[in-house]
Design a protein around this nucleic acid. Structure first.
Lengths: 150, 150
DNA sequence: CTTGTTTAGTTCGATTTCGTACTATATAGT
DNA sequence: ACTATATAGTACGAAATCGAACTAAACAAG
């Protein structure tokens, strides 16, 4: 392996980390004060994927420790955006439901974000983004599988 | 704009966020206990870009608030990996230098990471990565410039 | 030179993240 | 059924992140 190889992969992850940071800042600037991307992501997941999941399901979906998810869900519940009820299938567990208020909040956030995304879509049209997305998905899938192995 | 457009850009940033998280976990698993990617990144920057920068320069380079950089640098100094001296050009300011110990630490970290990166390089050869990297760099540059504008 | 504004860095406090340890329940093995 | 182990969720504490307010120094305008 030539010694220009390693730096390139470093750089790859570095670019990804910077984009993540910039995108997070951009998103959060559109959310009401105190609301973080974390909160939005959970609400979005509840709408897109499904309601009624357990906190543990959500923690796994976001690759985050369950204690972090407890914290995030507590915040969402405090704001009345989700509702947690006992899990009839498992008395240790709970089911997380999005409330009407949470659904409105999520829709509002998407609407608030849309102009930014539209601007990005103008600068980077879909034809460019689709193959990029494919490669990133492949990389993410691989890293994810690797993590499970070792 | 068809309504499949927005979700695709959502998904793009989502994949990026997940990769960032997985890569961070992978990197940190190779660093000694208590050492974070943040610390390594600063040391690496001091070697790759240049020594003797001010904390503010570093904060700008990493797009992070200066208070966070103060914190990171304090940790590095406590471990003897960097050295901070008064800035002869500006009495408010400091210059950050990497120590021999810091350099060894950085080299060791890279060596410890190399097998992981080699594994990735095997699964995703450079021919695949180079265009990906180009597109990501373009996206990062654009987001960065946009942030400066407004 | 004096005054007002900007900038570098730090301190402080609020919040997030997340590892450890714990309780309660579920599941597997015998 | 009984015991051992695994799992769901939480409480708690340590560390990281970062905004606001502060001090000291630089710089700009008159």
């Amino acid at each position: 392996m030539p010694d220009t190889t390693i730096p390139r992969y470093f750089q790859l992850f570095n670019e990804i980390a910077i984009i993540e940071q910039l995108a997070r800042a951009m998103f959060e600037a559109r959310l009401p004060d105190g609301m973080l991307v974390t909160h939005f992501s959970v609400l979005n997941h509840l709408v897109r994927v499904s309601d009624g999941r357990t906190p543990q399901d959500l923690a796994r979906a976001f690759q985050t420790p369950k204690t972090s998810m407890t914290h995030t869900l507590a915040g969402l519940e405090r704001h009345g955006l989700i509702d947690m009820r006992p899990n009839p299938r498992d008395k240790r567990s709970k089911c997380v439901f999005i409330t009407d208020s949470g659904r409105r909040f999520r829709d509002g956030a998407i609407a608030a974000l849309a102009p930014d995304l539209a601007e990005i879509a103008e600068a980077f049209p879909q034809e460019e983004i689709i193959p990029l997305l494919e490669k990133l998905t492949a990389l993410r899938t691989w890293l994810d599988a690797r993590r499970d192995r070792g």
